[in-house]
């Protein structure tokens, strides 16, 4: 019977009425100097977006709250949290990260820190 209690306990922990979570579609590009990340977040206000970089992990989160009025004829999308996390193996210079929100797309510039950039080693003649 102890297993049954386990089920009940787990149910109780599920938060009620939370908004659905979706993974936003992303493009990721990289060159020697930086990593670019573009994420679709239609309808999210700038202030509702959080970008968190910690210990090689990049977390994006944006909450969309729609303002609507009138009777619903149809609704194909609603309030949602766009959330996704990535591991960033290269060291990122956190102080130089730049984020822009344009037309519902989040554009992130993640510059690599100097010691993560590829380096040309000069060979000296003996």
């Amino acid at each position: 019977m102890s297993e049954r209690k386990d089920i009940v306990k787990r149910e109780e922990r599920v938060p009620e009425q939370s908004i659905p979570v979706l993974a936003p579609a992303v493009d990721i590009y990289e060159n020697d100097d930086e990593i670019l990340l573009h994420a679709d977040m239609p309808g999210v206000e700038k202030d509702d977006i959080k970008v968190n970089i910690d210990n090689g992990k990049l977390e994006l989160s944006g909450v969309r709250r729609l303002v609507t009025n009138g009777a619903v004829n149809w609704e194909e999308f609603g309030d949602v949290e766009f959330s996704r996390s990535f591991s960033v193996p290269q060291a990122i210079d956190v102080n130089k990260v730049n984020a822009q929100l344009r037309d519902g797309v989040l554009y992130l510039h993640l510059p690599k820190s100097d010691n993560a950039k590829p380096r040309q080693i000069a060979i000296q003649a003996a």
Binding site: L66, T68, G70, V72, N73, W74, E75, E76, F77
Partner: peptide, 12 residues
């Protein structure tokens, strides 16, 4: 994706 509403005087 679209949402469609009817407020009486107009559609949204």
């Amino acid at each position: 994706l679209t949402n469609f509403y009817d407020t009486g005087d107009h559609f949204e």
